[in-house]
């Protein structure tokens, strides 16, 4: 048995389960970040000044501070004020809050690219502003922002490695435990990089598929 086959058999299952953790953490985070991003982007256009201010503060704060510090505030900081979250919950929440701020800016630029006439023709037919947003504006926005939202999703995927610092057993932390037992940092960090490449490639292909589907529609 070659050393490589041996390694795959011994460490493969562990890497696979860590990769799985990364994948679902990423997907859940992306979903939540879109909700945050959409809420804040719509908040920025609200009639109410207070809502606009909250949305603006959110984007300003998140984009102006390191993701790692945001993760630490939520995982290590919140217990001090009585909110204790599991590493996984804290991790998803922190990454989603972080990514949501960038998604806000992406959606904002998408919204501003849609001519006012699109909204007006829908309102003029009797649709409510909410229905207009849902059925006329957002589908068009989604198509425009697909490339940038894909980039943001890739960032989220790679940012999950930051969660190794709060004991989430994802790829990086798993590799670190192996390295401290085997002293083979080169092998295992390369393995982590390769697995990330596989994951990012899958995600990119998925986005390309959606983009093609939309292109056909137009």
């Amino acid at each position: 048995m070659s050393e490589f086959t041996h390694d795959v058999l011994v460490y493969g299952p562990g890497f696979l389960s860590a990769a799985w953790t990364v994948l679902w953490l990423t997907l859940v985070t992306i979903g939540v970040s879109w909700i945050f991003g959409l809420a804040a982007a719509l908040g920025q256009r609200s009639d109410m000044r207070a809502v606009r201010s909250v949305a603006a503060f959110y984007v300003w704060f998140i984009r102006g501070t390191p993701a790692l510090i945001q993760i630490f505030i939520i995982y290590f900081g919140m217990p001090q004020v009585g909110v204790r979250l599991s590493p996984y919950t804290a991790g998803v929440l922190a990454l989603a809050i972080n990514s949501g701020a960038y998604v806000t800016e992406i959606i904002r630029s998408g919204l501003s690219a849609i001519p006012a006439g699109q909204t007006e023709s829908s309102l003029a037919l009797g649709f409510s502003p909410r229905e207009t947003m849902r059925t006329v504006i957002l589908p068009q926005v989604f198509r425009i922002i697909l490339p940038s939202i894909t980039n943001e999703a890739l960032s989220t995927l790679k940012n999950t490695s930051l969660l190794s610092t709060i004991t989430v057993v994802e790829l990086t932390l798993y590799a670190q435990t192996l390295i401290s037992a085997t002293f083979r940092p080169f092998d295992f960090y390369i393995a982590v990089a390769v697995i990330y490449l596989v994951l990012t490639t899958i995600l990119t292909q998925l986005a390309a598929f959606f983009e093609r589907r939309y292109a056909r529609l137009y």
């Binding site: 001519p115 006439g117 699109q118 007006e120 023709s121 829908s122 309102l123 003029a124 037919l125 009797g126 006329v136 589908p139 068009q140 198509r143 529609l217 137009y218």
Partner: peptide
């Protein structure tokens, strides 16, 4: 609005 039809200079059809 649903009882009054309106047509604009720039058509404003929905491209999607």
């Amino acid at each position: 609005r649903s009882r009054i039809g309106m047509v604009f200079q720039s058509y404003n059809l929905w491209p999607h």
